[in-house]
């Protein structure tokens, strides 16, 4: 078992790890040795029920590649679906992850999250956002929305092992701007949906609350807009923008009550 990759295919089914219980024990972290020396835990692990899931491989074409490439996908054995209710299996997450690992060399493992990701993608995401801003300023809302969506998509399709905080921030900025663009176009339902996503992603960020309040005003729901602003003010009570807008909304509510 001197090979660095001694890893038994086929795996003896419910869980004994023969190569590790061997003499001398693995040189790995002490937690591993503890585990191997603990028959109770091993027994517990073996007692856990497992189910053999039906699966099959298919070659699925990857969209938007030139020349057309294909990738291996795991699907359910019977219906050839990646997510199948009848077979009670869902391979979506697995296939998603495999997209990122399939081209990696065999020994490669995902880097730990504290490794800095290559800066190109951040640059691209920023560029898309800037293009959106330019279109927004020029008043070309459809192009602005398109660019913001592209920026958000790119931020979301970062490799999943990278720092999640980064992708979250980039996504929320793009969505916040998209909400503003929708607002300008009068598409208030879209603006509201985007603003709510921004809040879910970054609650302490006042801009999300501001956008939500504006969308609600657009929908004519002043009371809710008032509450949204109060929500935002919890995080930054001195925020000028929010306070100004709060006064505006309150004036509107009063006006409405007079009628």
């Amino acid at each position: 078992m001197a090979a660095p990759h001694a890893h038994p295919h086929p795996h003896p089914h419910p869980h004994p790890h023969p190569q590790q219980v061997g003499p001398g024990g693995p040189p790995g972290p002490n937690v591993l040795q503890q585990f191997n020396g603990d028959p109770a835990m091993q027994a517990l692990l073996d007692s856990l029920p497992t189910r053999t899931v039906p699966f099959a491989f298919v070659e699925a074409p990857i969209p938007n590649t030139q020349p057309p490439q294909s990738q291996q996908m795991v699907v359910c054995a019977e219906h050839k679906l990646p997510s199948c209710d009848a077979c009670n299996v869902n391979y979506t997450a697995l296939n998603y992850m495999h997209q990122f690992l399939r081209t990696a060399p065999p020994e490669a493992i995902p880097p730990p999250p504290n490794v800095q990701p290559p800066p190109q993608r951040a640059e691209q995401i920023k560029q898309a956002k800037e293009a959106g801003n330019v279109a927004f300023k020029a008043g070309n809302i459809p192009v602005a929305v398109q660019n913001y969506s592209r920026s958000a998509d790119m931020a979301l399709s970062r490799p999943p092992w990278e720092l999640a905080q980064l992708s979250k921030e980039e996504t929320s900025i793009a969505l916040c701007n998209r909400s503003a663009a929708f607002h300008l176009a009068g598409a208030w339902a879209n603006a509201l949906a985007d603003a709510e996503a921004v809040i879910a992603l970054r609650r302490p960020w006042t801009k999300g609350h501001f956008r939500r309040a504006r969308a609600l005003v657009g929908l004519g729901r002043f009371e809710e807009a008032h509450d949204a602003i109060i929500d935002g003010l919890q995080f930054e009570p001195e925020d000028k923008e929010l306070n100004a807008f709060l006064a505006e909304v309150d004036a509107k509510i009063e006006e409405q009550n007079k009628l």
């Binding site: 086929p10 795996h11 003896p12 089914h13 869980h15 497992t50 053999t52 699966f55 795991v74 299996v89």
Partner: peptide, 11 residues
């Protein structure tokens, strides 16, 4: 389910 999938694929 994720554990089941892994064990199935492994064996």
């Amino acid at each position: 389910p994720a554990r089941d999938i892994y064990i199935t694929l492994l064996s």
